[in-house]
Design a protein around this nucleic acid. Structure first.
Lengths: 154, 154
DNA sequence: CCATTCATGGAAGTTTCTTTCATGGCTGCC
DNA sequence: GGCAGCCATGAAAGAAACTTCCATGAATGG
């Protein structure tokens, strides 16, 4: 799967992960290949899906999304239909950053960003517990973001 | 805080969040301003910290990090020193994508990426439960990633 | 050993970047 | 109302980077 990546490809991936706006010229110089080759390599990494996207990481606090909340969700029934309906509904909620089906005491774990606690209380009451099939939610307010969305090591 | 952002700035932020490699020329055309102005706007967004970084999102499955695990952690003692030591130690573990201090039944929530369950079991035994002050961990294997690291809405 | 395939770097035309500069709008103070 | 200062804007131009084409050489397979 990753077998087709040589040392140069890995370098490019890591550099672009740290700085997605690196110019092809700089990239080429850093990995010690010609700009033409570097361009082709990078293009291939995109085409083959190694790089899913390049994203500007907007600072949450700067856009009034400084409050992070983790929510555990338990559904009424553990049927495939129940899961599918829930997942379909959650995909429309733009404040949900993560939604993962897990094994354990919960069915789903959510990671949510809002402006403040008041924001969350409104959203919780109006949108979360109103999701189809939700029996129970458990809210974990994040008091300190020690590590948030660290770059992938590979 | 976000008061200094006008409609054009917000457009630029959203466009760069969706595609961090958009050229300044394309960006300028889309938001209907001149390339020169667009360049200055974008530069300011970086300088003022609205864009913390631009990152290539590497596909986890493509680099043998396809297994996602959420872990709840409880420490022996809930003292500031205990927390500080734990956080210092966790920052060195590169497979930890998120680490958040939360209010509730756990002290910390971790989001971890590994190659497979076997990988995780080794890491759990050798590194997680060995972290300073850890009393208990609860592991939630992710069976399906419904939404992972969605772009921020603002 | 030969033929094929593939990745590579140089070169060149095109595009883009980035700075400079003059213009015009806005604000605040007479 | 009028004026001065400040700031953002777009045009322009030189510099830099992108992207494609091409010939070369290494690696693979028969």
């Amino acid at each position: 799967m990753a077998a087709r990546l040589d040392r140069t490809d890995l370098k490019i991936l890591r550099l672009l992960q740290n700085n997605g706006r690196l110019s092809n010229a700089d990239l080429a110089e850093t990995v010690a290949i010609s700009p033409a080759t570097c361009h082709r390599r990078t293009q291939r990494l995109f085409e083959d899906g190694f790089i899913a996207a390049v994203r500007a990481m907007v600072a949450p606090k700067k856009v009034a999304k400084g409050t992070l909340v983790m929510v555990g969700v338990v559904l009424d029934r553990s049927t495939p239909e129940s899961f599918a309906i829930f997942e379909q509904a959650i995909a429309k909620l733009k404040f949900v950053l993560d939604c993962h089906l897990v094994a354990g005491d919960f069915d789903y774990f959510l990671k949510i960003r809002v402006g403040d606690m008041e924001d969350f209380n409104r959203i919780h009451g109006e949108q979360l517990i109103a999701l189809p099939g939700v029996r129970q939610t458990r809210t974990f307010f994040v008091m300190k973001e020690v590590v948030d969305n660290a770059p992938l090591e590979f």
